[in-house]
Design a protein around this nucleic acid. Sequence first.
RNA 1: GUGCCUUUAGCUCAACGGCAGAGCGCCUGACUGUGGCUCAGGAGGUUGUGGGUUCGAAACCCAUAAGGCACCCCA
Length: 450
Amino acid sequence: MTAITPRPMSGFPELLPEQQIVFNRSLQIIRETFEAFGFAPIETPSVERKEVLTSKGGEEKEIYAISRMQSQPGEVGETEFALHFDLTVPFARYVAQHKDKLTFPFRRYQIQKVWRGERAQKGRYREFYQCDIDVIGRGSVSLFNDSEIPSIIYKIFDRMDIGAFVIRINNRRLLQGFFEAQGVAHGQIADVLRAVDRLDKTSRDTVFADLTKNLGLSEMQASAIMAMTAQSLPTDELLTQLSNGASYGNATYDQGLAELKTVVAGMRSLGVPEANFVIDPSVARGLGYYTGTVYETKLIDHADLGSICSGGRYEDLASFFTSEKLPGVGISIGLSRLMFALLERGVLPTGAQTVAPVLVTSMDPARMDYYLQTAAQLRSNGVGAEVFFDKKGLGDQLKYASKKGFKLALIAGADEFSTNSFKIKDMRTTTECTCLASDVTETVRQLLAE
RNA sequence: GUGCCUUUAGCUCAACGGCAGAGCGCCUGACUGUGGCUCAGGAGGUUGUGGGUUCGAAACCCAUAAGGCACCCCA
């Protein structure tokens, strides 16, 4: 029998237990925060019909189709299904399909893997987690949601303890109205938005050249756009500055500005610290379907990761699936990109290889019943415990406990049995104490609480 | 889809065209009632694959595959 050589698969990363534990902890924070804001969990199948996935102009070569390796002889093993490449398109289908059973405004969160058939590189995978929330309304959806979303982002990253971060906020109407006032042709606004969006990735000269040479704007237009989008001021000063510009006489601009002010006021009511958000007129969110508020979030010490959480407001979620207008606002956290980078950089230190805090050692194989009962008792009191089953010396058992990162080791041999007691060794401090067998659970709890 | 780089032990990497090596990790023992430290020993390789040049190739050439990076785009 020849062994199959295990090899890495590009773009399909995997973690060791001590890393996965850290990853899952972050996942838990995200889930709890979403639920604290009243978002309901849903999950859609990993696959959708091909026509659903391509409805919104999904790049076909980036979509993995699925098929059986072999069907009937001569039959092509193809199906009409493909793996979803994001969670928005399946969600749109879901809402359109179930809209008569859902209650609006519909708030849902969705944490699932998605797949993209791209060439992998740093921070870009072919299989990764997305954590999405969206609020969908029928006909309209309140602007207060736009304030609440940064509050959710703030709570999550604050709890995840991954260093300083800033939520950058902008409003697409503000940009669009400004571009219109500068005389940018209607059909070119999307292109200009895309060019501006690259401001934090490339040099200002490059963007300027892009605007003038590629998009054919005059130097005056380009200068005005650069000056407007490059503004960097404290929130209130910037809002004043933008209000002074209200003399553009453009209704879209004025609406965008008013929305921005409302969103900021709401964020302050929700207690989002000033240090964690900024109005950044250069945030445009590429092309996309965003129409109002847009968000990006960056780690200050890891700006090279790009936006780790972005989203915004859109006019219509499911225009391909229903004629009913379903506007919404939402964000997506690219958890895999974020976590893999932070684990690699040691920002999130890894610890134990187990989530159970207690190892019950077994010095006397004849008394395994006793060890098993003790572990069972710990578990039914909410304390995770593992029993060491193999016949090895105590030294080996403690070595095992040490390597895996158990916090406490329970020891019982002839000495302890004679006094009906247990010895508890704290692996972190190397200290030991002895307690009656009947007090084990309580003593363990106290030690773990320290 | 385009371009560049890389590939030698589980991992990180050495080896002038001339015997395939180190560190870390892993296993065993010192140590059958006490982990991390230390010491001693051990296992582990068709040098990604196929061809070519050469007396001789891990090294040079060609092809191919895989991996990585950048562009594009995005999380």
